[in-house]
Design a protein around this nucleic acid. Structure first.
Length: 314
DNA sequence: AAAATTTGACCTTG
DNA sequence: CAAGGTCAAATTTT
């Protein structure tokens, strides 16, 4: 941004709570759904109370706590290496919800640790969006220019069974704004297609493995969902990359902790992305023309062919 | 066009 | 007065 507001009206204080322009739609469900990647328990959770209405957590996933937030400010804090970000509930006006939170990065680890200070409980009755149990979701009915495909290799969350198509897009949105994914093999990948003029591109978001906490039980549709999707309308995105090989392996619809990888045979699941995917990564291109995923014990998970690089998003 | 974010100004607190 | 918190116009994104 080049131009700054040089002059502004003197606001009438005390503040009139709000006038934040445009709130989230009045729809009952939080739009899309913020990904709560591990809402069960923030890693390194360390709670302390400042007062009844405040609690502090330390987490790796400060933006995905199951609620929808609207950023309203950012401030450089004296002697702090990172700015403090101010958020309030997106339903502040709609539902007079006073919940707010402060997010401040506290370490520059990889991934970094954040301190999140919550103030007030949510009174918006917006159900917290469960963990990213975005199942493989090709959004076949999405007629917008954007479409997202989430390939869900593992499972996570509370098994709420949501199938919120907005969620995938939301995820990317959140991702783009907040995440600096590290390039670890991870059981979750999201491929998003968008139109950049006439050029279609695919973006993939790779989640730090540490962000994907093996869940309890979660349901997953058989993979690949692309194949089971009804014929997409021509106006929407159909995967432009053909599945040139796909294992007919029966994939269980329910995974249990500990077996979610071993039950899948991703080695035979190959996409041909040759002419369609342009990924970039701060780490550079993956060696060779293939990108494969492995579980921590070396078993193949997924195999994406041909010059795919992971999109680190920044 | 509408929604969301950015960012300096302005306010409160100590 | 300094530091932190919030506002809201401008800007960006969808």
């Amino acid at each position: 941004m080049e131009l700054q507001c040089l002059k502004r009206k003197k606001p009438s204080y005390p503040f009139t709570q709000g006038a934040v322009m445009g709130s989230a739609s009045g729809s009952c469900s939080p739009r899309g759904g913020v990904f709560g990647l591990s809402p069960q328990a923030p890693r390194h959770s360390c709670k302390r109370r400042k007062d009844k209405l405040t609690r502090v957590e330390h987490t790796l996933t400060p933006y995905f706590d199951g609620h929808l937030w609207r950023k309203y400010g950012q401030k450089v804090i004296k002697d702090a290496p990172y700015p403090r970000l101010y958020f309030r509930c997106s339903y502040r006006e709609d539902r007079h919800c006073l919940a707010s939170k402060l997010v401040q990065q506290v370490t520059h680890d990889d991934p970094p640790l954040y301190e999140v200070t919550y103030k007030h409980e949510h009174t918006c009755n917006a159900a917290p969006v469960p963990a990213p149990d975005i199942e493989a979701d090709a959004l076949p009915t999405d007629t917008s220019d954007d479409a997202a495909l989430v390939l869900r290799f593992g499972s996570s969350g509370d098994g709420g069974g949501r199938n919120d198509h907005g969620g995938a897009a939301m995820l990317l949105q959140e991702q783009q704004q907040y995440y600096r994914p590290v390039m670890h093999p991870s059981p979750l990948v999201m491929i998003n297609k968008f139109d950049d003029s006439n050029i279609s591109q695919l973006h993939a978001c790779f989640f730090p493995s540490s962000h994907v906490v093996p869940p309890v039980v979660s349901s997953c549709p058989p993979f690949p969902i692309i194949e089971s999707s009804p014929t997409p309308p021509t106006t929407s995105w159909s995967p432009s990359f053909p599945i040139i090989e796909s294992s007919p392996t029966v994939v269980p619809s329910t995974y249990h902790e500990g077996d979610m990888f071993s039950t899948l045979d991703w080695d035979s699941f190959i996409y041909d992305l040759d002419d369609h995917a342009h990924f970039s990564s701060e780490n550079g291109q993956f060696p060779g023309n293939a990108f494969s995923w492995e579980t921590s014990d070396g078993n193949p998970l997924a195999h994406l062919r041909k010059g795919i690089k992971a999109e680190g998003l920044f």
